[in-house]
Design a protein around this nucleic acid. Structure first.
Lengths: 316, 316
DNA sequence: TGGTTGTGTGAGTATTTGCCCATAAGACAA
DNA sequence: TTGTCTTATGGGCAAATACTCACACAACCA
């Protein structure tokens, strides 16, 4: 996928058109007249502004039902922070909505003046969230990756998002130049003992807040699809009772890590403790239900961003 | 202001509809189907969400801030046209950006099919703007100089730009073959009465649009540096309260012309009336702030092209 | 009871918008 | 310079959206 390569001046015009359209409420015809271009071009400008993500729409309304669900989830599972976004009944996207909410929540943390350490997991949802993050400058913060960023084929792991977020927010970032899953427990220990890695692991333990995706372990489990584990390993995990994976580590339905198997080789940092950090999972959808439930039961998380449907299912 | 008194549940629905519309990107038809209401009602819900301020649109682009500032300047000072360009933090140029914007604005006017009369002031900013003007053929228009084009040493005044612009746009041009400042009030009257000059003055009074630079009166005031007035005259003007100069004429901080002194000898045309013309000042920078403020206060202009920093300062 | 007022609805209609397509304009190699 | 490829532009049209209107219904009041 090659970038469309939009020049700056073009984006400026797009922003201008977008502003006139969304903020000033002009029609495309009016914009065309003001900018001295044809209506069609104005339309293109506006849609470019949208597709380039310049236009951010936010709804300032705690939709009652969602709030209600969030409140009940919080009480029932002793969570500190729950955000429930409305479910779009027609869409099957696993990131729509929750990614927006996650981006908003990240922004809330990043706005803090006092320096914070933010741990970042991995996954599609997280990647979508960070794509939606508005750029803000916060050099006072540190962002630390909780997972390695090297895929089995030695390429950069695509869903490792530490660079994306660091780029957006201009904070100091701490990637983990490691494979996600080491070839043996011994190798993992060796890697973790490296001078380059140790400080990152220590930093991740001090995180004030962490954002995590939850991966399912069905046949198209991200861990398998992305080539981090083999089909046999996936099946073995399932046989051992694993229902989900967080930063590469597999857990059973009680939220207890699976003993042995790939878990012994996962090179990710420990999930920050709920006692010292706000640990927020971002997940929605039926597939992830067991995983979310496990994460809650195992006291792995104290924050959750999900959607209405999933929230309702969790409460049953 | 009477409260429309909208019930909460109604607002919830509106928020939900708004969410489905703006965030999930559904059409009103789809929303209607999903929420089990008619399309018209869905439309009403969405527009309610907008009018109740539930929907917040933000543009993530520096331009957005500029447009915002422009809007506020327009409203605050009752201007018809304001353009704010981003301030380049690295550059100290007094023309960068605003000159481009001025050139664009000129182009917009020149594109008009119906003949217009364009008045042109003088100055470094204007010269830079015209240099940036892309050549277009517009024989239907007339460009008239508002100032004389003869420097005290009888050479062509360097910052009189009437020839430059005429050259670029192939319009009929009307220079004023006069010194910028006559040697005495009587000489000015004599010059203005000339058969060659009178039509130019009359034409300038009919201008549809005028572009003006604003000159400061600090120690390196252009009027002094270019040799049009002596140091003593400059000091006298300052003592009389002058803060800026437009087409050679000095004004105090209220935008009132200074009585006597060099003003009695300035051979420039009158600044076109804001009632019949769009009178656009092009200026930015701390030095010119008092001048811009004066031009606004004195109702000399109804258009402004400036930069972000200056716009912000003006609003304070 | 009957009128009045306010609110919400759907129908109809004018406006606005998104998108396809043909063509113009520009970029670039031969 | 020419031919070719890429990119941008404007026309046209169908879909989507906003607006106006007449009417239904309920609440309220004399």
């Amino acid at each position: 996928m090659s970038k469309p390569e939009v020049t700056t001046s073009r984006l400026d015009d797009a922003a201008r058109a977008g502003w006139l359209y969304y903020v000033a409420g002009n029609t495309q015809d009016e914009i065309a007249a003001k900018l001295g271009i044809s209506r069609q071009s104005a339309q293109r400008m506006v849609s470019l502004a949208v597709s380039e993500g310049l236009v951010k729409v936010r709804l300032d309304h705690p939709i009652a039902h969602c709030l209600d669900l969030a409140d009940r989830l919080k009480k029932r599972f002793h969570l500190n922070m729950v955000e429930v976004v409305p479910t779009d009944p027609g869409s099957s996207s696993t990131t729509l909505g929750v990614a927006d909410a996650a981006a908003d929540e990240m922004t809330r943390w990043l706005k803090s003046e006092t320096p914070i350490i933010m741990g970042i997991g991995t996954g599609r949802t997280l990647k979508a969230a960070i794509e939606l993050l508005s750029p803000i400058e916060c050099p006072q913060h540190k962002v630390v990756s909780l997972t390695g960023n090297i895929a089995p084929d030695s390429s950069a792991a695509f869903y490792n998002v530490i660079f994306n977020i660091a780029d957006k927010i201009k904070a100091r970032s701490f990637p983990m130049p490691l494979p996600v899953i080491a070839s043996s427990p011994e190798e993992r220990e060796l890697l973790h003992a490296q001078a380059m890695i140790r400080p990152v692991l220590e930093l991740s333990a001090q995180a004030n807040v962490a954002f995590l995706g939850i991966g399912d372990l069905e046949d198209d489990a991200p861990l398998f699809v992305d080539g981090f584990i083999s089909r046999d390993e996936l099946l073995a995990l399932r046989r051992a009772g694993a229902v989900c994976e967080i930063v590469g580590r597999a857990f059973n339905r009680e939220g207890i890590p699976i003993e042995g198997l790939t878990n012994d080789r996962v090179a990710s940092a420990r999930i920050p403790s709920r006692d010292t950090a706000t640990v927020i999972a971002i997940a929605k959808g039926a597939k992830k239900m067991p995983g979310i439930a496990a994460a809650i039961k195992g006291n792995l998380i104290n924050g959750l961003i999900t959607d209405e449907q999933t929230a309702e299912a969790l409460l049953r």
